[in-house]
Design a protein around this nucleic acid. Sequence first.
DNA 1: GAAGAATTAAGGCAGCTGATTGACTTAGCT
DNA 2: AGCTAAGTCAATCAGCTGCCTTAATTCTTC
Lengths: 216, 216
Amino acid sequence: MAGRTARAEQVGATRELILTAAERLFAERGVYTVSNRQVSEAAGQGNNTAVGYHFGTKTDLIRAIIRKHAARIEEIRARLLAATGDSTDVRDWVDCLVRPVPEHLGALGSPTWYARFCAQVMTDPALRRVMAEESLSSPSLRQIVDGLRRCLPDLPAEVRVERGDMARHLIVHVCAERERALAEHTPTPRSNWDDTATGLVDAVVGMWLAPVTPTP
Amino acid sequence: MAGRTARAEQVGATRELILTAAERLFAERGVYTVSNRQVSEAAGQGNNTAVGYHFGTKTDLIRAIIRKHAARIEEIRARLLAATGDSTDVRDWVDCLVRPVPEHLGALGSPTWYARFCAQVMTDPALRRVMAEESLSSPSLRQIVDGLRRCLPDLPAEVRVERGDMARHLIVHVCAERERALAEHTPTPRSNWDDTATGLVDAVVGMWLAPVTPTP
DNA sequence: GAAGAATTAAGGCAGCTGATTGACTTAGCT
DNA sequence: AGCTAAGTCAATCAGCTGCCTTAATTCTTC
């Protein structure tokens, strides 16, 4: 099993090239306007069908991109979760919920494409299922939901899921917006990903603590 | 000019059929997976190229769909704006910002497709420009931004634009989410569009009033 | 070291796309 | 009534798509 280096490494490198090229093209031009051929070419593969060979369909490729980042993000979330313990401060749990994504983007170094990619996948009527499946497989997310529920026992269950959805959308789209601004050299409200996360946490905490107007 | 009825009415009806069919297909299957041909057929036009004839490119068709709804939404916003006057209550201005969209969707009657359509257009790297152009042409939106600024004079300018962006994304995606749930007969957090708007306003007001953590 | 498998390359195929074109139908004007 | 122009239809075009097939290359394993 010592001989797995040479070949397997080459294959892994090719896969990585394809994943990176795909993520970039998808983010910049849109998931549906970019063909598997173009991805293969952009990855430097003379092979027309490199994507098909290594990943299968475009949906499989997208799933692979998500998984690649999910691992890192999950690590960060687990770390923050450990630090939070059994806090009863809403902000601690919102930190766990919000910070992993911008922190991951910051760690990637400029420029990044993943947030714009995610925003598209989350919004597309066909692809949103893929993203949902991959997200649901994270046990740490469930822990955060539980933690928030314990902090806010009086909040009606429907409002909790409503505001959870809002937070999800907010995280992804604010990061995507900043990513786009960076790519286009447009001014951004915050000067780095860490401050972006802070602004996001401020807003999400405010949202979550907001009083609920009763509806008849 | 009295004789404009017969022919012009037919044409207007055909255009309307195409717009409705396109909006529905785009929302359900995705803007890029639906071809102009399929739109023409779904609109009952034996003509392959009805979309091209009446609207031009797909982008032009999308712009026409946006304009069609924008007029109604603008009316509602103007009405709410008049009622708000020169209030100094944040919630009044957030009402003006948030309620037009869900109220418009409610007035359309179930099922609707526009919110899902908008979510896609807003997120796509190429189409987002179209949506931005159409939105910027609304003077009443600028009034609301001004009103909010007067209510929150101590909020840093960057945080104001940041939270304005957040509100924009929240409105569209929460409405899209509810629309999707209605279409799939999945339970929704709120039982009608009016309550959805209330939940959205609660959250956006909380977000806007949230304290700002200083960043070095 | 040679047989064999995995990977990459290259070309070809049917199907669909947007866009153009010309023929046909119908409304509105004189 | 007859002409013009707008609207509708159907066929066609080149270009691109995903997918399949067939070499060529490279590494593994016996």
